[in-house]
Structure formats: structure tokens, C-alpha cells
Design a protein around this nucleic acid. Sequence first.
DNA 1: ATGTGC
Length: 474
Amino acid sequence: MQPKLNRLLRALAREGLEVAYDGRLYSVRLHGNAHSPPAEVLLPPDLPVEGKAFRQLAHLAALRHPAGGEVLRVRATPDFHPGDSGVAIGSVLHTRGLVVPGAIGTDINCGMRLHVADLSVEAFQAKRDAFVERMKGHYFFGTRDVAMGSRAAEALLRDGVQGWLLETLERPLGCAGQADLSQLDAEVARIHLGGGLKGHPSWAPESFTREGVVRDAGLATIGGGNHFVEVQRVEAVEDRGRAWRWGVREGQLAFMIHSGSRDVGKHVGVAWQERARKAWPQGTPLPDSGILPLADERLVSEYLEAEATAANYAFLNRLLLAELLRQTLRELFGDVEAPLVYDVPHNLTLPHEGGWLARKGACPAGVEQPVIIPGSMGATSFLMVGCGDARALESASHGAGRARSRFSLSRGGADHRDSALGLTGVDCVTLRAERRVEEAPAAYKPIRPVVDAQVEAGIVREVARLSPLLTFKA
DNA sequence: ATGTGC
């Protein structure tokens, strides 16, 4: 056990948390909750963890609904940290007969997308400024008011990327030039779940379901917080065979996209956390953890359909962010290919062993599945492959995890010099100067120990490392 | 997380 962590865990034990360490994993459980499973977490050495995150984890495992259903297991990723719906980010929740809207929250189908291109760093940097100007136009000023047919919008919300493709006869919104729809179609196989779940337009904001043309779809926008679009270099390849099969080679340029379902996810997430509160049985006190499950069979399936609707939107949002980038590359560099490596959600509820698995900021890591773990700004990102570790609930971390809050950096008397924030040498393009500070390297924990711990535990293996060249932040 | 909201 680590001394600092040891002190924290002793303090938690005094306030009623049962804490154990089996030489590999830490586990926590609310005192007197022997009926519920302990929540397990893998922690790298010397990584700061907040007590609040442990408390949230223990409460999640202790969750019950008077009408039935059960929590089968709770596991947290090594980068877990407190979340504001009462569920820690990095929580993986396996349930049967109940689901928890707050275990996903509002950032539904937040996820990662990775492309590679056979273009040298030198060739790219020679046209860096022109590239930045065009991408700023697309990402920061471009696509918000671009119209989308309501048939395409409905097909998207119902069936995801595949449905949208069938209804998209012309070029996708806002994209300069023609998109290669047959290429997009072929790439659907490299999107987790084929880029579509069974959704329904009625769960989307009303502006989407109105007859006629959707003028304000908000697609192809990065979003805030830790979301970004980054140009990278494939720095090192560890697993040559697998990298080759995935089209990844050392020295290539890479494009990594971290974004989600924007306003649609917020719309669904807020509505369903409220609905769970209203559906809580009368006469039973609301749990003070603030974590509210749904147990009614019909409400469960309605929630999952609503979540799927937002998820479908997020899949297309990432696809279009990539498409704008790919088309800008073609404009500047000629006929350069930038094939999709993989697109994977890390904030989604999916079926699992006859129940449900809610990953809140955790990347699926089933056997042979591509796992994309982004570093924070300025840091290395990782392309990994899942090992299907059952004890980890087939899940890996989705980043390094926040070390300091946005507030503590934006105010709180922080040292705002680039050197103190770790921003020296970081090329970050943003319209809001405060983003650079809030998301600066100093705001995050180091990624390497988080990745190493998961490799040692047999959760993932390294395929390639990617180093940042240029980051876009909204 | 949220074309954040104070």
C-alpha cells in the first residue's frame, strides 16, 4: 500500500467505508452493506486520488431499488475521479434488472476516433498555418447553421451512421467538396457497434423532429471540457503485426478526435436523471448519494432507447469532425488518404451477460478490440488492444484523469505562466484563452503510470504511441 | 459534459 493513499483510506474507514487491498486491487464498500458487492479499483503507484471519488464508488456499489434489480459488480479505472451526477468518472457498473441514467450522465457516447494518413510531419508543418485557418473556419465558425434534411436527421437518430448514410444522397453538411460516401460506408465496420444503436427521434430535442429541414443540427462541433481534435505523429509502434493490420505505421500523421453528443446528450441525460427522481417509489426516501436507478421494465427500455438516440448523434458528430479534416487535407495536400483506424465510445450503457454494463468514462477493452486512450494536452496518446479481462469488466481507462479542477486553474490563484502550466511547446488552437489554462497539462495526472498499470494487470496491450503536434479546442 | 451561466 502507498503511504499517502493509506492515510486517505484510513480516514475513509473512520467515516464508514470498508477498505481492503488484496495486493492487486483496492476495494471499498459502505459499512453494513455486506449484501452489495465491493467496488474494485486498480491504482498505479503515487497517483493522487480524491476521497470523494472513493465515496461515490462505494455508494454506486450499494445502490438498490425497492422494486428489485441488482448491482452485480462495480469496477473503477485507474484514472477515476469525482463526477457531478454522484457517479465517479471512470466507473463501470454491471447491473441486472435496473439501469442508472446518472451512471452515464449527459455526455452520452463521448468517445474517441482515430485516423492515420501517409503524410510526413514536415509536409504537414509546411502548410500548418493554412491548415489551421481552414479548420478554424470549419470547427469554430462553420457548420452550425448548415441545414440537414429531416429524413436524414430521423434516420440518424433511429439507426445511427448507417441510417444517415442511406438518406444522405448529396454531400454531408458543411463539407467543402464531395464526401466519398462509399468510403464512409466501408468504414462503418470500424466504428464500434457499427456506429448505430436502436434509437428514436422522439427522444431528441424538438428542433430535430420538426418537419422540413433541420437548420441548426450542431454537428461537426468539438464541444468543451476535455474534448479536442488533435493532429499527431505515430511516434512508436509496439505491436507491428496488429498495427499493420490496423493500417498504422511509424512516422505517419494521425488525427485523434475526442467528442460526444453535445446538446442532444445533455437533453437526454438531464431529462432522464429527472425522470428517475420522479419515478422513485413514493414513501421511500431518496438515496442521499443522489444516484437514482430505474427498475421498471418499460422505463428501462425507454431510457436505453433515449440514450441510443443521443449515441447515434455522437457517432455522426465524430464522423463529420473527421470528414472536415479529411477534406481539408485533400485540399491542401492532394489525394491523401486518411483512413479510419477505429471509433469507440467510452460513455455508454451496453448489454453484458444478460444485464447491462454502464461505462462512465471507460473504454471497452474486449478481446482484440482497439482501445484509444488519449493523453491530456501536450501528452502522448495510446492506441492499445483489449485483453477482455473479466475482472476489469472488459474496460480500460479513457485518459489520465483530472488532477486539478477547472475552477482551481481558472481562479484560485493558479500560476498562469505557460511554464507552470506545462504549456511550453504545446501548439493549441482555441478561440478561448481560458481553455488552454483549464485543460493545460498541469490540470491532468500523468498518463504513463495509468497505462502501465493496466498493461501489467492484463487489461490492455500497447499497439502504438502517438505524440501531439497541434490541438484544436473549442 | 452543456452554443455552460454567474
